[in-house]
Design a protein around this nucleic acid. Structure first.
Lengths: 187, 187
DNA sequence: GTCTATAGCAGGATAGAC
DNA sequence: GTCTATCCTGCTATAGAC
């Protein structure tokens, strides 16, 4: 692996562990094994490296999301699969965390985050609409609203888990959402 | 208002706007109109001032929460009132934001946040249980799980709103939650 | 209680040699 | 491409006068 790739890998780790502001070029260099010279040879700035790193993170997260939502299962089951995906609740969301940082003002970074959430919401809404057409769930609910709610539950689950330093908070939030989903199902 | 109070007020504002790490003693002094001397005369450190400030914030937020939940309305309606409370979605949650900061390792700060969420969850769960006893909602759902889900929706709503810089994301998440709540209601 | 001066350190980046 | 040395700035806090 080249120095450039080592730097990106280190940045992805540190963005998750500490966030953008708290990720110093020094720390990136130490973790990657690359020196100052390599850093500023391959990237114009810390923001530049972070953009590359977060882009990779966004791509990975979208793939993970698709693994749950793009299967041959019935649509409502695919939504449940998304909710039930394993998550490292205490580490927080790799994209959502940017949301609470000054770095949110860096447009390229924010773009990755908002695009990811938009994608999740749209795919979940599409699945819910399909479930409605198939008569699996109530036709009166607003699929887009509920899709947003479900994505919010996951993000909120991270917040609650970190606040109490208890990963079960995420599980509880997810279980509650699954229970509510069961209720709109027609049997 | 004394210099001490000016400092606390400024810290509360800056904690909301920028978070703990990005809130410099300099900025607090400038906004409060107090000098270095006053700062370190009244508080031992930035962490000390932040603890005092966040304690006041937590108290205010609990009061706001109680305004919705502690009324004479039917329990399910009180839960809805909580969800429908006005929120400045783009500014984020004054307590939830700490969750994504290094400052989470400062135990006094984290305590305010986790206590607040615990309180909200318990009160909402109690209201849902009362609704169950009154036969207003399905008796089969787990009130504690759903209470956690609802608190998570609000926190997630902040995340989504900030990510897209669109306060409507919060409204959408809340609407979806209200729609799901309607579904568990017995009519 | 409040002021000014100052210290020590880390962040982010540049320069120029190799 | 990578290294070391160096720069400037701002953060957090202390010192000591008033």
């Amino acid at each position: 692996m080249s120095a450039r790739e080592h730097l990106i890998t280190a940045a992805k780790e540190l963005l998750w562990e500490r966030g953008y502001e708290a990720m110093s070029p020094r720390a990136i260099q130490e973790r990657s094994g690359a020196g100052q010279g390599s850093f500023y040879h391959h990237f114009a700035s810390k923001a530049d490296l972070a953009t590359t790193a977060l882009g990779e993170v966004a791509a990975e997260m979208q793939e993970t999301f698709n693994a749950a939502l793009h299967t041959n299962k019935p649509p409502l089951e695919r939504v449940r699969d998304y909710l039930r995906q394993p998550r490292e609740a205490l580490r927080g969301c790799r994209l959502g965390r940017i949301t609470q940082e000054q770095a949110l003002s860096l447009d390229p970074l924010r773009h990755f985050v908002s695009s990811y959430f938009l994608y999740c919401k749209q795919e979940i809404a599409a699945a819910l609409e399909q479930a409605q057409r198939e008569g699996a769930i109530s036709a009166t609910i607003d699929a887009a609203d509920v899709a947003t709610t479900l994505v919010a539950v996951v993000q909120g689950g991270y917040v609650l888990a970190r606040a109490s330093q208890d990963p079960q908070q995420m599980d509880q939030a997810i279980h509650g959402a699954l229970a509510l989903l069961d209720t709109i199902e027609r049997r």
